[in-house]
Design a protein around this nucleic acid. Structure first.
Lengths: 324, 324
DNA sequence: GTGAAAGCGCTAACAG
DNA sequence: CTGTTAGCGCTTTCAC
């Protein structure tokens, strides 16, 4: 920047102001600076900028499992969304462990990240307080309102209702769910929503048809196995996410349970593989591309100083395929 | 750090040396500093460190398509591998475009990244020279040696041979390949290898049974469609990667071509979905977890100043499933 | 409309 | 074995 200033015959302060636009610069001065910048192929040193401003140009994406295609898509969308803002996405895997989640959040504060986008899995609302107090913008992608942060959550009511309509229209009444762990962040809104809506269709999700596990394929297989040992087997199984549903399919095949003949299966998310398995997986799609873009936008608003806290709903959609 | 120094009753230089271990510190001094660090809950400001040392703590992961589960797994493995080194992974998507690849590489230099891990798609060897000259360690994950950088590549010879053995043992002789684009980095070693080995099995991959496209599901579908219009249809199709193979399956189903009855299908990579599709996809597995870990290790060696350039081979493995 | 200069927090000479 | 200090490249007051 000093070099640019010299070539342009101005002070480095002026170069800085040309770059930031934070105070008016005479047209000819600006032109000279821009020419010098091009001539020297100059780019600002973001490290120095960060040190000076106390704000890095990094956005942390904190997720339970980056290898899950759903989160991979989120990462891709977020990266695309923040690229134009001169920010970079740092990926952080928590393995769904609260201590990791907390450690990563703390690090985001210590390193003065420009923002955090997180899908919490075992965090408690109070874990966010330090981050918010430190002035680091946080966007949470989760099912339910959650601490003093911007939130992006799915409006899955209509989609879940539609799923139930299809399931019950086929005469199924014994609705089960392979839900997330009991200590997951925000309880289990997907289960609660399902239960609430089931009543509207004259059925229910009885306690002994709810099994729990991590959001993984293995846990899905285990959960499905459990359900098949129930005295009265379910004829429809909703799953916490698509990875779980795929695990359930694995187990169904192993046990000789026909899907959808014996049991209808519904996932959540619409991860890429939902349309690849056979039968194809019916699922409640959470438009992850939109989430990534929205997160980038919310971050930008915060960084621009607009402090309005937002809860943004994105419409989930029931995608009916062969598993139902 | 000044605070820590004050509490510990030493200079900030000493605190720095305790942290870095770059010069001996008396045990009692060290103890005092460590106590002060704990008391104040101090962590170093990596931004300041980076500015001073001229090296950021960021590793860029540059890939064609982060939403591809294969690269997502790579990201997860790399992140895990570098976390212990105090580094962060910044993900960068190129969309397989050379200009993006070059821009991202240039940025890694300008921002003085600690390292770059890249799967080039359309880069030329000379594109790396500036990065190497700038002293930024580069690890390339690709099929063939490639410029003055550390390389991790699959040894796919045995696996490909085994795949061909299975295919030809079933009496198939009309071998086709849906390959990558002609202008892809490094040509098309997977195709070349297949051709070479095919001769050993008394067959070949004739020119008119090679079609080309991007490494995407859509391109796979298009490629398979093309092949099915050939005067003499292939009875076995190798694909540049698993996404392409899945696209081929899509098209096969659409056209009523039975897999593996009419056509055997073999992918590359063993991305998560290979075992999900039906029939399951036979594929030449490239152990991506190992690649991520190895990349982290090579980076560490470079950062420790060990300058030996390395070409590391990781063994690919033929995974036989239902598509063959 | 522009410039001079302080200082962000750290590391690494250099000096003792 | 430890301390003093310059300075990394930038932003931003303060002064003109």
């Amino acid at each position: 920047m000093a070099d640019v200033a010299r070539v342009a015959g101005v002070s480095s302060a002026t170069v800085s102001y040309v770059l930031s636009g934070k105070r008016p610069v005479a047209p000819e001065t600006r032109a000279a600076v821009e020419a010098a910048i091009r001539e020297l192929d100059f780019t600002v040193n973001t490290t120095a900028r960060s040190l000076r401003t106390g704000r890095s140009s990094l956005v942390a994406l904190i997720v339970p499992d980056l290898a899950n295609p759903f989160f991979a898509q989120l990462a891709a969308a977020l990266e695309e969304g923040v690229r134009g803002l001169g920010l970079h996405v740092v990926v952080c895997n928590t393995g769904a462990r609260r201590d990791e989640e907390r450690a990563l959040l703390a690090e985001a504060v210590q390193q003065r990240f420009a923002g955090v986008v997180i899908t919490p899995f075992r965090l408690l609302p109070r874990d966010f307080q330090p981050v918010v107090d430190a002035g680091v913008p946080v966007v949470v992608s989760a099912d339910v309102p959650f601490g003093p942060v911007d939130l992006i959550s799915p409006d899955a009511r209509a989609a879940t209702r539609e799923a139930l309509r299809c399931v019950t229209a086929a005469g199924r009444r014994r609705i089960a769910m392979i839900a997330g762990p009991r200590d997951a962040t925000g309880g289990d809104p997907r289960l609660e929503l399902l239960r609430t809506l089931a009543l509207q269709f004259g059925t229910s999700v009885p306690r002994d048809l709810v099994v729990r596990g991590e959001h993984t394929r293995e846990a899905g297989a285990a959960g499905f196995g459990e359900l098949m040992q129930r005295r009265y087997r379910p004829d429809a199984v909703f799953c916490a996410n698509d990875a779980v549903a795929v695990g359930a399919m694995d187990k169904a095949r192993e046990l000789g349970v026909d899907i959808p003949g014996d049991v209808a299966l519904v996932g959540h998310d619409d991860a890429v593989f939902a349309s690849l398995v056979r039968p194809q997986l019916s699922t409640i799609r959470y438009p992850v591309g939109d989430v990534g873009r929205l997160a980038a936008q919310l971050l930008r608003e915060r960084l621009d100083g607009r402090e309005v806290r937002k809860n943004v709903l994105v419409k989930a959609e029931f995608v009916q395929r062969g598993s139902i």
